[in-house]
Nucleic acid binder design. Structure first.
Length: 279
DNA sequence: TTGCAGGGGCATC
DNA sequence: GATGCCCCTGCA
């Protein structure tokens, strides 16, 4: 299946931008595992991605949604380009978009990311899938385990994977999800503050993770997760922000960029990580 | 070898 | 609101 975008869409930039953990690459072919599906995606043109899949088939509208192709990204970028802090960074990240992941998988994945680093996070999550997930037919991959499967694995199993102190939180959150039969997708009707407050209700989930889940799985482009990279980027670009707490910077970012805050955040994160914002 | 930081959160003060 | 602790890894 061919996915077409009305503006440049950089598959590599998007997949490797730190928003998604369940992927691997072989010579430009990206394999993405999510929600019982394995996607094999390749960039064919600047605005075009070729996708094949195995397991639970996604329809074209679901794939369009996954890559946020219905969003007016061009308008968002035009707005950010006029911003004094971000303007010069935009050309390098024009093809970057925000994907829309499965909410539950996104939540647990970002819980696993706390005080970690990307290679380790991806390894932990790959091991978690391998040990507790269900085989996806037609592939060697296993899906992300359900809350029940993680509860069964137990905190000890999660610790053996190397999740450390995160194991207790992940186990407790999955116990809650299973016992209360909570479907996070039912939370789509909530406005963003209500949604993030609800997510913060889970053990081990604070402001940062809640904003990530709102942005990366509920399509809330008004969310603004602040991690150490974004914090560093902001204090370099605007010294007045130095010393502000992550929570205050979160408010500041939402205030400044509104419905474009999420993409602004992702650009700041990538630029800081890529060394484009000199310290 | 040791020390430290890495996409946080929570309890305690 | 600040501080210490949670657990593990990779890197200097």
């Amino acid at each position: 299946m061919i996915l077409k975008s009305d503006s440049p869409l950089d598959l590599r930039l998007t997949i490797t931008s730190g928003q998604l953990f369940h992927w691997s690459e072989d010579k430009g072919l990206f394999k993405i595992v999510q929600d019982g599906t394995v996607l094999y995606a390749r960039q064919t043109e600047p605005c075009e991605i070729d996708i094949e899949q195995a397991g639970k088939e996604m329809g074209s509208s679901e794939l369009t949604d996954l890559f946020s192709l219905k969003r007016r990204r061009k308008l968002v970028l035009e707005k950010l380009e006029k911003d004094r802090l971000l303007g010069e960074l935009i050309p390098a990240y024009r093809g970057l978009t925000i994907m829309r992941q499965h909410p539950y998988e996104c939540l647990i994945s970002f819980m696993a990311s706390a005080m970690s680093n990307i290679p380790r996070i991806m390894r932990n999550l790959r091991d978690l899938r391998a040990q507790a997930g269900t085989r996806i037919t037609g592939t060697e991959e296993r899906s992300f385990p359900s809350p029940e499967q993680i509860v069964e694995l137990d905190e000890r199993g999660l610790r053996r994977i190397g999740l450390g102190y995160r194991a207790k939180f992940i186990s407790a959150t999955c116990t809650l999800l299973a016992k209360e039969c909570i479907q996070l997708s039912d939370w789509s009707d909530k406005d963003t503050p209500e949604l993030t407050d609800g997510l913060i209700g889970f053990p081990g989930v604070g402001r940062k993770i809640a904003e990530c889940v709102a942005l990366f799985s509920f399509g809330r482009w008004d969310a603004f997760p602040v991690d150490v990279w974004v914090k560093r980027a902001l204090s370099t670009l605007n010294p007045k922000l130095r010393g502000m707490s992550a929570d205050d910077l979160c408010e500041w970012g939402k205030e400044r960029w509104g419905s474009s805050a999420g993409l602004a955040q992702q650009i700041l994160f990538c630029a800081a990580r890529d060394g484009r914002i000199s310290r």
